[in-house]
């Protein structure tokens, strides 16, 4: 059986400083997952906190069989999925029956007149990211914000590596198409 890292042992023995350090190390990853997967700003901070409370309760079960960051990421991802299911936000499986592509089932891009309100590219991009299914958003976030490998993303999302690659490719293609459909390349 793989031994737990010393930091985990210290947290389990009640060392609050060790836990605070643990939160500092992983809060960036957790916030990336939560902020990209959960559109409602009011829920985000509470969710980030819940995830660390859940991690604290479950740390005794961590067995060093994966990287600690991957384990924390999985806790965060699953918590976000549960939250979205409770809020009845459709997930990718709900949106995309077998055999269909995401392009055909995801709602159309934001209408051009709405774009008038969003002059800034970063804002427009975030807006379009929010129109993607949550699993796509998580994969894009883990790859581009946290520099995770396909394998690590697969461990967090419990998706096969091939599916991770496919989600990433389709998400980026969709985003590029939606942003360039209305704006010339120079503006993008």
């Amino acid at each position: 059986m793989a031994e737990r890292p010393e930091q985990i042992e210290r947290i389990l023995s009640g060392d609050n400083k060790a836990f605070e350090e643990f939160v500092r190390q992983h809060q960036r990853l957790v916030s990336h997952i939560v902020f990209r997967m959960v559109p409602n700003d009011e829920d985000r901070k509470d969710l980030c906190q819940d995830i660390f409370l859940k991690a604290h309760q479950s740390l005794a079960g961590f067995r060093n069989e994966s990287r600690l960051s991957t384990w924390v990421g999985r806790v965060a991802y699953n918590r976000c999925l549960n939250h979205l299911e409770k809020k009845r936000v459709p997930l990718f499986e709900d949106l995309c029956p077998e055999g269909e592509t995401v392009d055909s089932v995801i709602g159309q891009s934001t209408p051009p007149d709405e774009y008038a309100e969003h002059q800034d590219l970063a804002v427009r991009l975030r807006h379009e990211i929010n129109n993607l299914p949550p699993q796509y958003r998580a994969v894009v976030s883990l790859y581009h914000l946290d520099d995770m490998t396909y394998k690590e993303i697969g461990e967090i999302t419990q998706l096969p590596e091939g599916t991770v690659k496919s989600y990433l490719f389709r998400a980026r293609k969709l985003l590029k198409e939606r942003l360039t459909a209305k704006y010339r390349a120079e503006e993008l």
Binding site: A122, H144, T180, A185
Partner: peptide, 30 residues
Amino acid sequence: VRYRLLFDGLADDSDIVLPADFASSVTATV
């Protein structure tokens, strides 16, 4: 070039901000 600009945008996390005392407040809650 379009993809390059898109990827740069996707790597931008300036909109994701947690309070500076987040770690200590979570620890206090625990």
